[in-house]
Design a protein around this nucleic acid. Structure first.
Lengths: 121, 121
DNA sequence: CTAGAACCTGACGTTGACGTCAGGGGCAAG
DNA sequence: CTTGCCCCTGACGTCAACGTCAGGTTCTAG
């Protein structure tokens, strides 16, 4: 598939895909005329990349982790790296849950019209 | 307390605090000589702001939400706004959990030295 | 064969949350 | 009084993940 189709399938921009290639996150073969060609599996790959970006990983970090994903093997260092990122994400989740609960409390507070009387009236 | 102390207490930079004021997120009284003075409650406020930033809210959005937090009351619109952001955060949490699980799967995969034979040896 | 969509490679623009530097004032200790 | 630390206001710098524009090539439908 060509870049436009992949972009549509994966829900990202064409520019983003070229950027991922530039960063070494996503390889493509080329047609005779130089157009990028992708396998169907690229859709999943792009979504993983997006997930990792959304989790706050930088291109450089992703670029360091993906090769060992592809190779399906890892050095002790890369394993530690993966685990560290996993734990970071865990921390982020906990933080987000806390933030959501604070927001809930605020909503609770602001929802009561006058005083917080709970009388059934 | 002055700005340096608040920065230390809340774990952010002095520059960040000035930026929050510029964005209308954090008010301060001024001493005769023009120095910013904060109440003790400001520490908590700053941490809430940080939480909201970490949850992906922009300054503008936070600036729109905080006043109704202070007033402890809300218009129907602001209530909808609060709920919408809450739901956005919920979505983010779900996405992060998915990402974490994908990472876990990857770790699983790469941890097995050779083939995935589960034989006890 | 030709118009228009899709692709290519640079390369500069954008945005948000600060970092950092310049230049100057105020305040407690010695 | 002066040394040193904290404070002030601009105002420019930064960085990442793209957006966007220019100028040119390629593919495809009629």
């Amino acid at each position: 598939m060509r870049i436009g189709e992949l972009a549509t399938e994966a829900g990202v921009s064409v520019r983003a895909l070229r950027y991922y290639e530039e960063q070494g996150l996503l390889a493509a073969t080329r047609s005779n005329s130089g157009q990028r060609l992708y396998a169907a599996a690229a859709v999943d790959r792009v979504q993983l990349i997006q997930n990792l970006y959304a989790a706050g990983l930088a291109s450089r970090t992703i670029a360091e982790l993906l090769p060992c994903v592809d190779a399906k093997e890892s050095t002790p260092e890369s394993r530690a790296r993966l685990a560290a990122e996993r734990d970071r994400i865990d921390g982020q989740i906990a933080e987000l849950i806390e933030t959501r609960d604070r927001l809930d409390a605020i909503i609770e507070l602001t929802e009561r019209p006058e005083h917080s009387g709970c009388s059934i009236h």
